[in-house]
Amino acid sequence: MTGTGVLSSQSIEKLIETGALSADPAIDPAQVQPASLDLRLGKVAYRVRASFLAGSKRTVAERLAEFEMHRIDLTDGAVLEKGCVYVVPLMEHLSLPDDLQAVANAKSSTGRLDLLTRTITDGGEEFDRIPQGYNGPLYAEICPRSFSVLVRPGMRLNQIRFRRGQAILSDQELTALHAETGLVAGGTAVISEGLGFSVDLKPAYGDLLGYRAKPHTGVIDLDLIGHYDPAEFWEPIHSTDGQIILDPGAFYILVSREAVHIPPDYAAEMAPYLAMVGEFRVHYAGFFDPGFGHAAAGGTGARGVLEVRCHEAPFVLEHGQVVGRLVYEHMAERPAQLYGAGIASNYQGQGLKLSKHFKAS
């Protein structure tokens, strides 16, 4: 039995052995990450009228009966269309012990495609939050925002992390950890309810600041890696004055000024700043696994890729503006394998980078 904190890969494997985590078909060992488990799409998608939560004492199946428009067989692949909302039962099922809770998030590549993916549960009153002792099925709500996507059963769009107790580092603890290990490079450590990070709009590698999603594109097959020409889906953004104006409704890929580091005994989650910072949102969600940007795992600090969506009004984003924060947590134990260390991690040591589906520019 491990102590307080985020469960490691070896503890997740024990949950599978005891039946607290089960699936049909059985969970593939490749789904187990250093501090999370990848979740897989099932065989059917329900097109629904609107996003919803089950609500107290209600099941997702009951609510689907209210909101379903039609259902789509995913067996041979099917397109989820931009601007529509779908609910897909996942292959995994939880029977959590009373001292264990879980939180879900979109995987990195999912977020970089502006593919809003959230987990819902029976009795759930929040997205992506699963209470202690939950016993029931899992569902993914999927809303493609910029690109229509082709999906199949078994695809992994989101992931789940398990926690025992509360293990978030205080600002004092985070300050001490930064002094010991150097959590950021390329900028000052801004510590306030987590580690703040800012946007890089004066890149050292030229005037390419990032990318903006084109409004009318083809379908992206999520199984195709390194396949698509970025120019067909993205407009490069160039600037020399250290600022850009975000257009309402547009989606951008930018990069943090700071290179961040997650030591092996810690995990982190990216959280957006409050809306009062400006009329935009950075990163739908995001887990940072132990070893991300860690020298012993093949990284020397790694930039945080920022998925930015502007809301009601045009907004001027300027170089060095703080746009989000990383919330660090203790691991219950060090993972047997770290991010990037022989597990085919796609974004170790990254800078400005589109999702893995696009050819390297």
Results as ranks from 00 to 15, higher is better:
A204M: 04
T300R: 12
A302C: 12
G196T: 05
L326K: 00
V190I: 14
S36W: 10
V149E: 05
L94V: 07
K214D: 08
S361C: 01
L195Q: 03
F280W: 06
S22G: 13
Y211I: 05
I237P: 05
I225T: 14
G242S: 09
L246R: 02
E258L: 05
L326Q: 05
G340P: 00
E17F: 04
S36C: 13
I130C: 10
T188L: 13
A140E: 07
G187R: 02
R334Q: 15
E68Y: 03
L37G: 09
P264D: 02
K356V: 04
V88S: 01
A268G: 15
H311Q: 14
N105T: 01
L90K: 01
Q31G: 08
L115F: 02
K214H: 09
G124I: 03
K57M: 14
V199Y: 08
D114C: 11
L53P: 11
T181I: 13
G242C: 11
P144D: 06
A20D: 11
Y266W: 12
S256L: 03
P131D: 08
V282K: 00
T110P: 03
R129L: 12
W234L: 06
V87M: 08
G124Q: 07
A295C: 00
P137S: 15
A78E: 06
Q159S: 13
P263Y: 09
V322L: 15
F67I: 01
M69E: 15
G249W: 00
L7M: 14
V48F: 03
V87I: 15
Q33R: 15
V282P: 00
R118D: 02
A106L: 06
H216W: 07
G136Q: 15
T188C: 06
I130R: 01
G42C: 14
A360N: 12
L157K: 04
Y328V: 12
L174F: 07
D122T: 10
K202W: 01
E173N: 06
E232P: 03
T121Q: 08
P264Q: 01
G154H: 08
V48C: 08
K107T: 06
D207N: 12
R281Q: 10
E13I: 07
Y252S: 00
V282N: 05
G349A: 11
A275C: 03
A35M: 10
S192A: 14
L21P: 00
P34R: 11
T121V: 15
A302N: 07
Q33A: 12
Y134T: 11
K353G: 00
R257P: 00
A360D: 13
V32N: 06
L352M: 02
D265Q: 12
H216T: 14
P264F: 03
G187I: 07
I12W: 04
L209Q: 09
E13G: 05
T240K: 11
H311R: 15
A268Y: 04
P290E: 03
